[in-house]
Amino acid sequence: MITLHYFAGLRELTGTSQEQADLAGKTVEELMEWAADKYPGIERASARVAINEEYALPADVLEDGDAAAFIPPVSGG
């Protein structure tokens, strides 16, 4: 299983901050497609994906037990 995290506007869009999904073996690109299917509009949020707290590339593959986070454009400072 993969643990998914949603923050800020994406937490409000999805209505959850965290969930589990059976996405091991999928790429980050496929994860985005899955999310866009489940939460229409998320694909327009310009979100980056982090795996295990590091920014990931579209071709990176999720492994069982990974934490994947949707990171909308940041606005700290």
Binding site: F7, A8, G9, E12, A45, A50, Y55, A69, I71, P72, P73, V74, S75, G76, G77
Partner: peptide, 20 residues
């Protein structure tokens, strides 16, 4: 640029996540 922190502004007539 890179630190995952988000700011929401709360105004008298609404609110919005900045960066969105």
């Amino acid at each position: 640029e890179i630190v995952p922190i988000w700011k929401k502004e709360i105004w008298e007539d609404g609110e919005e996540w900045i960066g969105d």
